[in-house]
Design a protein around this nucleic acid. Structure first.
Lengths: 93, 93
DNA sequence: GAAATTTGGTTTATAAAATAAAGTTGTTTA
DNA sequence: TAAACAACTTTATTTTATAAACCAAATTTC
């Protein structure tokens, strides 16, 4: 049995990735609301995805408010798709 | 977003459950080989699944050798199916 | 036939992960 | 201008997963 990429096999990181797979980009606040996570947890998990090169995290400003925008990278997409394939072998779809 | 049952969202426990979903019963040794896990880890995870009522664990003997047989329960099947459904919402199948 | 090895595990300790709590910086509002 | 808020980050705590050590019984080896 192939191993499930542990970076993706985490509730919150998987949720974030699955959101990012379906949109151009999403900001911190949006991800926080959609995933109903705490800011701390989200921050940590975004860092991990970013360190792995699965997403880009761009910190900027809109007016005077900070805004952190995230996008999935090509590498992230590949990893996600491979993860899904592996999962299929487990749950049999 | 619905939460992924944390009892099932674990590599090894998910592997065990997915095996048990497809066979009448499986013993410790078989599960260990199929999942390539250590005995210790498998033992712990079987306990958790058993405590949750997702599987039954029956310790017996074949000749003089101990044999631990596992089966998924109705509750386990339901939980597994719900987990898969939830997962679908994440990964979009 | 005693010592070492294997089998089939369990229990305990360690490492890694997730989560929560507290802290930071700048901003708006009363 | 002080209190509250927004958007995060950092650190601490708790939970989980994994690995290491151990145990009992049977089997093999010397």
């Amino acid at each position: 049995m192939k191993e499930l990429n542990p970076l993706l096999h985490s509730q919150l990181r998987l949720a974030v990735m699955s959101i990012l797979m379906n949109v151009e980009e999403a900001d911190f606040v949006y991800l926080r609301q959609k995933t109903e996570s705490t800011a701390g947890n989200l921050s940590v998990q975004l860092d991990k995805l970013s360190s792995a090169g699965y997403i880009t995290v761009e910190k900027g400003f809109v007016g005077k408010k900070p805004r952190t925008a995230c996008r999935v990278t090509k590498k992230g997409k590949q990893a996600f798709e491979e993860y899904v394939d592996t999962l299929r072998q487990y749950i049999g779809l």
